[in-house]
Design a protein around this nucleic acid. Structure first.
Lengths: 137, 137
DNA sequence: TCTTTCATATCGTATGATAAGATATAATCT
DNA sequence: AGATTATATCTTATCATACGATATGAAAGA
């Protein structure tokens, strides 16, 4: 058995010890927008507003600032030219990665000290939880 | 086998789908400081400065603001009265939890649809990775 | 004891982020 | 044509972030 709070203990410990060093100065709101664009298909400005629960004009300003920083790009929807589809730039993907992922050098180092059984355990568990998380919605 | 980038795919998918709804407006820097105080023993103001790579006066101001928001408390070091030890308040623990942990209601829901073998798999894998992460430093 | 160093706090100042209301523009729908 | 939708811009306000300069009080060294 496992409790949710125990899992969160493991979860936060893993992130604290394995996250990337803090580089780019970036705000929480901006990370959330990057995550949204990364994980969802065809995100438009209004999706940003509803997801963050902010007004559409504030969302539009976030987008403007993020384009100026070269985190994202705009593309007009072909079916409906009013809509603006947001996409991550390579730089934006990188910023998102460094702010939400685990440091892959550290991970590789940990994996190199594991046997195949342990690696298989980790792989299966994370795959399982991520699949259930996606279908949970 | 598992690659680090595949694990990060799972990791970020899990967080995107299972995080708490965005409540308190909070900045990235403040979350980092909360994490530091939560995970390390006897954190003083200077630790905040070196950990975030900011000047000591800026760190001191972060601390002041966070105390005003009732996220943390100060306590003087008994051995060295110059030092100020930082501690999370219950409210601060809660804010940190909602900004870095997985939503325990959603987790419970997922676990309720799993059999014992699957739950054991998740438990063992997260325990293993968190232990290796800690000793990796 | 006197001086220096250390740990933190405060003040002044500057910049940028965040947010919303009001208004504008351009595309789409009826 | 007129209404609606999606986004953008302008104005204004507040707060966060950051640092240099300076101050205070505790600890360590001569």
């Amino acid at each position: 058995m496992i409790s949710s709070s125990k899992l969160n203990q493991y979860w936060t410990d893993i992130y604290f010890h394995l996250h990337y060093p803090h580089g780019e100065k970036i705000t929480h709101q901006v990370v959330r927008i990057l995550q949204l664009i990364d994980k969802k298909d065809r995100v438009v400005v209004n999706d940003v507003a509803t997801h963050l629960e902010i007004s559409h004009n504030t969302a539009s300003e976030h987008v403007k600032r993020m384009i100026n920083k070269n985190y994202i790009e705009k593309k007009r929807d072909q079916n409906d030219e009013r809509k603006v589809i947001l996409q991550l730039t390579d730089f934006g993907k990188n910023v998102l990665h460094e702010n939400t992922s685990l440091d892959e050098e550290k991970l590789n180092h940990i994996f190199s000290d594991m046997d195949e059984v342990e690696k298989e355990l980790i792989s299966k568990a994370f795959k399982l939880l991520s699949e259930r998380a996606k279908s949970c919605m």
